[in-house]
């Protein structure tokens, strides 16, 4: 059997409209990764300063009214294994070999704090079908609105850091994630984790200032004494300590289009569970594809017109056996 050449060409013309943009290397409707907001706030986490005291975890639970999370039988301690609907923030331990030296990849250990990175171009916001996840236009905080959410969990698929968490044990569940204590920011405060961090491992502030501070730390010489601000990047409350070596990389400066949470460490970030991401955001890739196909619904309407014409012609002029 075979199709007539004419038929084939007609259909191919319509079909290629759909397929064309996914083939073309540089689609016309490419959507760039979004730019940083000037007023955006974030957190700088420095793993070389972190002592693993978990004060940030305790403060986070208290100020977000989260219940304890039990990963061991007995339900005595709050000992989460990972982020969950009950834990927005967690300190994890990287350990290698004998695990003797802090902030060393071989035979060493390092702490790493995991929480929402507040991406500049968040995949979850792009993915959410009902705008339950939104990015604040001033602070850049990625917020969740349970009133809009339908619980489809596409945000969980989309997030490269596996941050949004779902209440699996609830009949009326919600998505739960760090919102940078925006309820405290609204009252003139700032993130509880930074306010309660005793050592200045996590500091809160304007992302531009945080980037400057991160670059300053990378420029420090190991062994010399340097000051580290506590709680806030612009704080007068500083602490002096001997600088330990840094990996020359600010995680979150470019990863996945950039994040408002920046991280410093001396162990490769991939070993600390932070994925290697391309500079362009997953949201921009997905939306480029979507917009190329569906911008203004032009392609679908054209295709519909073509299909209608063919069906109409074929049904009216049909030559039934």
């Amino acid at each position: 059997m075979g199709l007539s050449r004419r038929d084939f060409l007609k259909v191919a013309a319509g079909g290629s409209l759909v397929a064309a943009s996914s083939f073309s290397p540089a689609p016309l409707l490419a959507r760039e990764s979004k730019a940083r907001l000037p007023e955006a706030v974030g957190i700088l986490y420095d793993a070389t300063v972190c002592i693993g005291c978990k004060a940030c975890m305790a403060a986070c639970k208290e100020y977000n009214h989260l219940p304890p999370d039990h990963s061991t039988p007995g339900s005595v301690w709050d000992n989460p294994l990972d982020l969950s609907a009950k834990t927005y923030n967690i300190v994890k331990l990287y350990k290698n070999g004998t695990g003797q030296t802090k902030d060393q990849a071989i035979n060493g250990y390092s702490f790493i704090r995991r929480f929402c990175m507040h991406c500049v171009d968040p995949a979850c916001v792009s993915a959410c079908p009902v705008s339950a996840l939104t990015k604040d236009s001033t602070t850049g905080v990625v917020k969740y609105d349970k009133g809009a959410c339908i619980g489809c969990r596409y945000c969980q698929i989309a997030c490269p850091y596996n941050v949004p968490k779902f209440q699996w044990d609830q009949a009326f569940p919600q998505i739960k994630k760090c919102q940078l204590c925006d309820h405290r920011i609204a009252q003139g405060g700032y993130s509880a984790c930074c306010e309660f961090c005793p050592n200045g491992a996590s500091i809160f502030g304007n992302v531009q200032d945080l980037r400057k501070e991160a670059r300053r730390r990378l420029a420090l010489k190991p062994g010399e004494v340097a000051h580290y601000p506590l709680h806030r990047v612009d704080s007068q409350d500083v602490r002096h300590r001997i600088v330990t070596p840094y990996l020359n990389h600010i995680f979150g400066e470019r990863e996945g289009g950039g994040t408002q949470v920046l991280m410093l460490a001396n162990v490769p970030f991939q070993d600390l569970g932070l994925p290697p991401l391309p500079d362009e955001s997953a949201a921009s890739q997905s939306e480029t594809l979507m917009h190329s196909l569906y911008k203004g619904m032009i392609a679908p309407y054209v295709l519909l017109g073509g299909l209608f014409y063919l069906v109409y012609k074929n049904t009216t002029k049909q030559d039934l056996p």
């Binding site: 294994l81 990972d82 250990y109 070993d271």
Partner: peptide
Amino acid sequence: TPPQTFPPIHPPE
């Protein structure tokens, strides 16, 4: 000593 009571980077879940 590095504490033993921390979750690892990739806990079994």
